[in-house]
Design a protein around this nucleic acid. Structure first.
Lengths: 207, 207
DNA sequence: TTTTAGTAGTTAACACTGTTAACCAGAGAG
DNA sequence: CTCTCTGGTTAACAGTGTTAACTACTAAAA
C-alpha cells in the first residue's frame, strides 16, 4: 500500500546514499542499487522517474538536513549574531565533512545534473543562505559588522565555505596542511572581511 | 609518424575540450569524440590509455594555462605584492569564467576521477598555489599583511576563490546577484582577513 | 626483389549502463 | 467469477568504455 510504497522509497534512498559513500558516484548503477536492496532494477522506476530524479530527492533531503543543522545554530545563538555567524560557518563545514555523500550530491556534482534540478526546489536551498544573511543583518544592526548588501555578502561567505569544504572532501589540499588549522583560517579569512573598522590607507582598497 | 601522431593527439584533446564545453561532461563519449574527428573510437586508445587518461591530459594542459596566466600577473606586479595578490585573485576567477571547460575538468569533476590522477602531477598544480603563497610572504615582508603560515593562508584564499568560481560556473547563485559585485565582494572578503590591523575587542576572535 | 617488422587504423565483441514495453501474480470489488 | 488495479517482473533497445583480432601500408633487411 501507500505506506509500504513510501517505505520502499526510503529504503532505496538510504541504499543509494550508502552505495554512493562506499563506491563513489561513478560506480552507482540502477542495477547494483536494485540488487543491493533485493529488487529488480525496474522497480526503482516505480518510485523515481529517473536516476536524476533519485539524485534530486537526495539533494532535497540533504538540503533539509543542512537546514536543520544550521537552524539549530540559528536558535541557539539568536541573541549574538556574531557568534551565530561563526558557528554557522563551523556547522556548515562540519556538515560537509560529516556527510560528504550528501554534500557531494548537493553541491559538487556536475552542473549537468543540476540543470534539470527544478528551479522551485532551489528556493528551499536558499533558506540556508538566508540564515547567513539574517546573521549578517543582525550583526550590522548591532553595529558590529559592515556590509552593503547582505545577500551578496552571504553569498561570498558561502562561497568561501563551499570552497573550503570542496577542497577538503576532494582531498586537494597539500597533505602538510593541518585540517583544523585550514578550517580556522578559512573562517577567519571569510569573517574578518566583514568587520567595520578598515585601517586607513588600506592598501587593499585599490582596484 | 611521430609528428603526425602527436598531431592527432592534439586534435583529440581539442575536440574533447570543444565537445565538453558544448554538451557537458555526461554526454562526452569516446565514440562521439571519435566520430567528431573522423576516426574510429579505438583510435583514441592509441594515444590515451583510457578516458580518464584523456581527462588527465586535459587537466595538465589546464594547469599549465592557469600557471601561465598567473605567472604573467606575478611578473607584472613583481614589486607590489598587495596589488599582485589582488590581481592574482582576479586572474584566477577570470580564468575560471573564460575557460569553464578547463576549470571543470581541473577542479570540479568528481574526486572519483581525481583519485587516479598521478600524485606526481599534483606538484605541477601546486605551482599555482605557490604564486599566492609567494605574494603573501612578500606582503608580510613589507609589513602590509599579517599571516602566520603562508601556505595555509594561500590555501584558504584559494578555497575562497575556488568556491566563488564553482558557484558562478554552476550557476548556483541567486539570479538577483550581480556577478561583478559578487566577485568583488569575494575578493575583498578573502583579502581583508589578511590585514595586519585587527580592531581591538574584535568580536570575531572568540572561538 | 622479396620478405619481414612495425605502424596506424579498423571491425567485432564483451560486459556494462539507463530506460521502456510487455507481461504476470495476487488482491479487492462488482 | 470476472475485472481492474497494484507491485513487481523479464526482455529488449540503444548506448557506454574497453579489448582482441585483424587489415592495410610503409620501410627496412635478406
Amino acid at each position: 500500500m501507500t505506506d509500504e510504497s513510501t517505505n520502499l522509497r526510503r529504503v532505496i534512498l538510504d541504499a543509494a546514499r550508502h552505495l554512493l559513500a562506499q563506491d563513489g558516484y561513478k560506480h552507482l548503477s540502477m542495477r547494483k542499487l536494485a540488487s543491493a536492496i533485493g529488487y529488480s532494477a525496474t522497480t526503482i522506476y516505480l518510485h523515481f522517474d529517473s536516476k536524476d530524479a533519485l539524485f534530486h530527492a537526495l539533494i532535497d533531503e540533504g538540503m533539509s538536513r543542512l537546514y536543520k543543522a544550521l537552524h539549530e545554530v540559528h536558535l541557539e545563538h539568536a541573541d549574538d549574531p556574531i557568534m551565530r555567524l561563526r558557528m554557522l560557518c563551523r556547522r556548515y563545514i562540519q556538515f560537509g565533512l560529516d556527510e560528504p555523500e550528501y554534500y557531494e550530491v548537493m553541491f559538487m556534482l556536475h552542473p549537468e545534473h543540476m540543470e534539470r534540478y527544478p528551479a522551485a526546489k532551489y528556493r528551499r536551498a536558499r533558506r540556508n543562505l538566508d540564515l547567513f544573511a539574517q546573521a549578517l543583518e543582525d550583526g550590522v544592526a548591532q553595529g558590529q559588522l559592515s556590509v552593503t548588501d547582505s545577500r551578496v555578502a552571504a553569498s561570498s561567505t558561502w562561497a568561501s565555505l563551499h570552497g573550503a569544504v570542496s577542497l577538503l572532501i576532494a582531498q586537494r589540499l597539500d597533505v602538510r596542511i593541518a585540517q583544523e588549522e585550514f578550517i580556522q583560517a578559512s573562517i577567519d579569512q571569510a569573517l574578518y572581511g566583514l568587520l567595520p573598522v578598515k585601517p586607513k590607507n588600506n592598501p587593499l582598497t585599490t582596484i
